[in-house]
Nucleic acid binder design. Structure first.
Lengths: 338, 338
DNA sequence: GTTAGCACTCTCGACAGGAGAGTGCTAACC
DNA sequence: GGTTAGCACTCTCCTGTCGAGAGTGCTAAC
């Protein structure tokens, strides 16, 4: 049972560990908070906290380190969020207004700013329509047995894919086919397109529509995800030795490819979600935490997230992710107005 | 003076060091090449090579390590290029044909393949028209004192930028202005646009045209550069300790931003250029080498490059960069046909 | 010009020892 | 029962030493 005092001590352990990255000793706790208790008493409480799984020892007779459960408890009930002060807000807004380019540059800059503000890596994904639909598809002859399929979505995305043909087709034929297929699936979502595909007799036509369905669904993670702050993360003491650092780079790179979306399907716009260590299904993410938020509006939603070791300043990160997400929603709205 | 024998020995030192990453001893040379000379003789020659600046010793009485001059000499006159065998060509082509998406995905995949093939990082930049011209510009009202400038180039690039206005302007006014300015600068290159800008009396109009000129010139490095193989590079023994690895990540990241183009302005299409260590002007690149090639055609040119430590298998890297660049030129041509 | 021999230098890994940090436990205390 | 002083114990980490090993430069002889 987590008594009030034990909870307080847990909070001290977690925040101390977050800021020092060193196992926290009973003495450090007493000293830092000028407690009117002896180290022995603290040690007794620490033993209980360890028994209950909130903290662990790296080795016998070292200080204590929070477990994932410890962090979770900290986030849920112990921490005091550190608000984004007016000064910092101004700095962030100022940087964000430096953008001279288009959406992509803006997203990339957002990731950079967020990463800088929290000292960990940040990821921003491009906003996407909740469920996109096909506006128009086109077929272009590449050579005698390959066509290029170009699909324009109603949220303005343009996707293309090479399409092998079973039966060679001229440009005229392809154009005619595109007109015919457009008539059937314009405005369709991926599901409808797939059901149409299954009704088509001609294998090339069916293939084309299936490809279109894929394109509607497709999340081109690599191109739609902006990652920055690799440097900041790698500077964290958990990656002091080269092997771990290498592993970290690999994790972040592959993670970038895989994308965050699957994890955050259920995140509400405006809320901020925290995933700590083993709470990721993924084995390679056991030592990482993410703070995730959505931004955008009903039309299109993107993701903002911070990634770092589980020893992360949640009390700073969470409000900052939330703030940036909100800011981005606003700015996106402003731009959309036009 | 570099006698023939000394040159041969230098070649052995360089290639041995490239493959083992360990300082090369006189004994290793004799043993590896079954020379009919004693180690003492080799030592004498090594001393001369060191005197002449081709090799150095990390510390007294360690083996020898090539200097930048040593690598340069190796590349220029000693190495035997290792051709890309038919089997490897097939593998590369096969991978490259996996692309289902558009140009960007294709470029990003090319970087990945090249990086994998040579075991170092690879960079690919998007092909750009040698000198682009404006096709059409548009002004959109964002709010009362900001407009969005959208410029379409004749090579199909679309660039946008927010434009602060000195005098507020309605959408009607902006549209009218765009029509007027288009009439004057459609088809203009950056230089012509700038000279037109200097003739305009209205500061907002002059500002707009200047911004257009910038956009024509602009190389949005961050978005136009595809980097892969960070992992491969970091696995090289030169980055065994964490500090160096951190430095390497930083270098590659900033390098990515800065782009390669300035370095390669003079590179001819089809030729392959090698820049070794201090030959970069840049301080942070003293320990890096690059193998650079251009691809594309008269209409648009991009860059393919491999980046790694100066201890790089030049004899493998150079032909592979050249091969990939050629392949990309072909494929680009094929796609352009359509 | 080549080579054997040898003294010398420097690195690197292993090992031991000691300081330091921190714990758990016990017994006494309030 | 909770609290605490005291203490033995454990584990890490730093330091210094030592010897093996690798490789060189030099000298003198071929």
């Amino acid at each position: 049972m987590l008594t009030e005092r034990r909870a307080a001590i847990l909070g001290m352990v977690v925040s101390e560990y977050i800021s020092t990255a060193e196992p926290v000793s009973s003495r450090a706790i007493v000293a830092r908070h000028r407690l009117d208790l002896s180290t022995a008493t603290i040690r007794n409480e620490l033993a209980r906290l360890e028994e209950d799984g909130y903290i662990t020892q790296p080795y016998t007779s070292a200080g204590r380190v929070p477990s994932d459960l410890g962090y979770r408890t900290f986030v849920e009930m112990l921490m005091l969020e550190e608000p984004v002060e007016a000064q910092e807000q101004r700095t962030i807004e100022h940087q964000l207004h430096q953008v001279v380019g288009g959406l992509d540059e803006w997203l990339s800059l957002s990731a950079t700013i967020l990463a800088g503000s929290v000292g960990n890596a940040a990821v921003v994904t491009r906003p996407r329509a909740a469920s996109s639909r096909l506006r128009h598809a086109q077929l272009v002859e590449l050579n005698h047995d390959t066509a290029l399929l170009v699909a324009v979505m109603d949220d303005g995305r343009v996707r293309q894919r090479m399409l092998p043909l079973q039966t060679p087709a001229s440009q005229a034929l392809l154009t005619e086919r595109a007109v015919r297929l457009n008539a059937r699936i314009e405005g369709a979502d991926a599901r409808l397109a797939r059901s149409v595909a299954s009704e088509l007799a001609d294998p090339d036509e069916a293939g084309t529509v299936r490809a279109i369905a894929d394109l509607i669904d497709e999340q081109r993670i690599a191109e739609e995800t902006f990652l920055d702050g690799l440097n900041s993360v790698l500077r964290q003491p958990e990656f002091l030795d080269a092997d771990r650092m290498l592993e970290a780079v690999a994790t972040l790179q592959t993670y970038r490819m895989r994308g965050l979306l699957e994890q955050t399907m259920d995140a509400q716009l405006g809320s901020t979600q925290v995933v700590i260590g083993h709470e990721h299904g993924d084995d390679s993410m056991q030592e990482w935490s993410m703070v995730i938020s959505r931004y955008g509006d009903e039309d299109a939603i993107g993701t903002v997230a911070v990634i770092g070791p589980t020893r992360m300043p949640y009390h700073r990160t969470i409000p900052r992710v939330r703030y940036v997400a909100r800011l981005m929603s606003h700015l996106l709205h402003e731009v959309r107005q036009s």
